[in-house]
């Protein structure tokens, strides 16, 4: 994973709440077995409408999505993160994220920056009145800055550290392999195994 420290790009105001992962990428796009090439599925239904924000300039070139509350709820599909990143997004800002989506973002290197809703509203106003405004997201300082506006965002320390370092979770866990083996030796014997029972 590429380390992330700061990112600057065009902010896209998405005034919708409860943007579930079925909206981010409909199920029909999940049939692929690859990890890339999901950009065509991003907001596929909404992008069919000419006036959808990603169909308008300069927002089609955006890389910082500013969304309403409860972004990424619903299905666990990590394809939602892949689709956002394949399209070019590096940061999503919302006042509340679906838990699984937030976890998936961290794995893929997408920053899920949690801002207070009033701050989201300020960003929306700014991005709507001055389309094309660049937004700078500083992970080290945990700030979002656009023109004269600077607001704070929340992200937990561990996720921030992993993103800053670009670390792979499996590699980190395997450093504790002896602990896993020790745990396995004391698991109760009656716990089930999946090998066919007959």
């Amino acid at each position: 994973m590429e380390p992330f420290s700061t990112h600057t790009g065009i902010g896209v105001p998405l005034r919708r709440s409860n943007v579930d992962t079925d909206q981010i990428i409909p199920a029909v796009y999940l049939k692929r077995v690859t990890r890339t090439g999901f950009d065509d599925g991003l907001f596929a239904a909404w992008r069919q409408h000419e006036d959808f924000i990603l169909n308008t300039e300069p927002f089609s070139r955006g890389s910082v999505l500013v969304a309403g509350p409860d972004f990424g709820t619903g299905s666990s599909r990590e394809h939602a993160v892949w689709a956002l990143m394949d399209y070019g997004f590096r940061v999503v800002i919302s006042s509340r994220f679906g838990d699984i989506f937030r976890g998936n973002s961290a794995k893929g290197g997408l920053v899920a920056a949690q801002c207070e809703q009033p701050d989201v509203e300020l960003l929306w106003k700014l991005l709507e009145t001055e389309p094309g405004t660049e937004v700078t997201v500083d992970l080290r300082e945990r700030t979002v800055q656009a023109k004269d506006l600077t607001v704070a965002f929340q992200i937990d320390d561990y996720t921030r550290w992993r993103l800053l370092e670009g670390l792979d979770d499996i590699g980190l866990t395997l450093r504790h392999e002896p602990d896993i083996t020790a745990y396995e030796q004391v698991r109760p014997g009656w716990l089930p195994v999946t090998t066919p029972a007959h």
Binding site: S76, I100, N104, Y158, I170, L172, I180
Partner: peptide
């Protein structure tokens, strides 16, 4: 609980998950 594909890989490889 449900997990994403990176976590699926993590469980396949380690039978564990780092979680708060």
């Amino acid at each position: 609980f449900g997990i994403g594909t990176s976590e699926v890989e993590h469980v396949l490889a380690t039978q564990t998950l780092p979680l708060k």
